[in-house]
Design a binder for these strands. Structure first.
Ligand code: FES
Ligand code: FES
Lengths: 144, 144
DNA sequence: CATAAAGAGGACAATTTTATCCGAATTAAA
DNA sequence: TTTAATTCGGATAAAATTGTCCTCTTTATG
């Protein structure tokens, strides 16, 4: 469904959100450990998230990654997916035609677009805050 | 969503089904041309579909690929996806945890499982015949 | 200012996926 | 029985994704 990079990116963002709610910055080492991902690769993905304004980074001593507290409830999982995997999962043809075109639909188009819309709505209506709070309560997990 | 191999596999199966309804066998060359896919790679995928009993092959002169007419309406897209991509798209965790476990859910689990169930139902209830008939009518397309 | 603790970014390596090629096996038909 | 038309399967190559490493830059702090 999503690339590994995207999976790590979502998990990392939730972990950063959780910590930002408690005013803690976190670095790639701690993030990778907590989400069970390769550290250097995760750092690369974090760079992409910074470039796409999903997370902020603070360089230098006592630096790390954080998300503005006021943004945590408005950043949607869709924003993260779009930043890393692009919008093919929302817009692309399920059977891999060059584009999904209502006027020249593939055989799965009518059925596929319903599922895709459902996925899109789910990702666009799920914010980081609610996921971070569930995690904080211990109801959900980021690894294993 | 699906791998390239799976996309080609589904498109190829629909094309074979369409031709089998008209008692024509088709070879990899014609298939690749009609679904706009790389020929040798498509042939490899067809082998996998044969091994998984989605399509039949007839070797030798006047051979080719076909699907038993009586099977066309009972073969579901889910069967093709499972044969090529496996069942991760149905069963796997959306955030890439080792397994999707109701008792140790990832943060997206509750929302993700609904979309995944929808996708599963769609794939399991869509048969080759209906797709092949739409294609025959010219309502849908397999390339570009 | 000097130093140490961070992220940024480029080069590189490993793995997986996608794609190609070619010889062997199979079979209908001449 | 020979031939030509086929699929099958293994080896290989190319491209994309995943993952690692090392140096540069930035910045808080002594
Ligand atoms: S054309 Fe294939 S999903 Fe729309
Ligand atoms: S645990 Fe992640 S989808 Fe179920």
């Amino acid at each position: 469904m999503f690339s590994k990079a995207c999976e790590y990116g979502i998990r990392a963002s939730i972990f950063i959100a959780l910590n930002s709610l408690e005013h803690r910055r976190v670095g790639p080492k701690e993030i990778a450990k907590e989400i069970n991902s390769p550290e250097a690769f995760t750092a690369k993905i974090l760079q992409a998230l910074v470039r796409n304004n999903v997370v902020n980074s603070v360089k230098g001593a006592h630096g790390g990654f954080e998300i503005d507290k006021k943004d945590i409830k408005t950043i949607m999982i869709a924003d993260i997916v779009k930043a890393i995997d692009g919008d093919n999962v929302y817009k692309g043809c399920g059977l891999g035609l060059h584009e999904c075109n209502e006027n020249k639909p593939c055989p799965m188009h009518e059925k596929f677009k319903l599922v895709r819309a459902e996925l899109k709505y789910m990702l666009e209506s799920t914010d980081l805050e609610s996921l971070a709070l569930d995690l904080k309560l211990g109801d959900t997990f980021l690894k294993v």
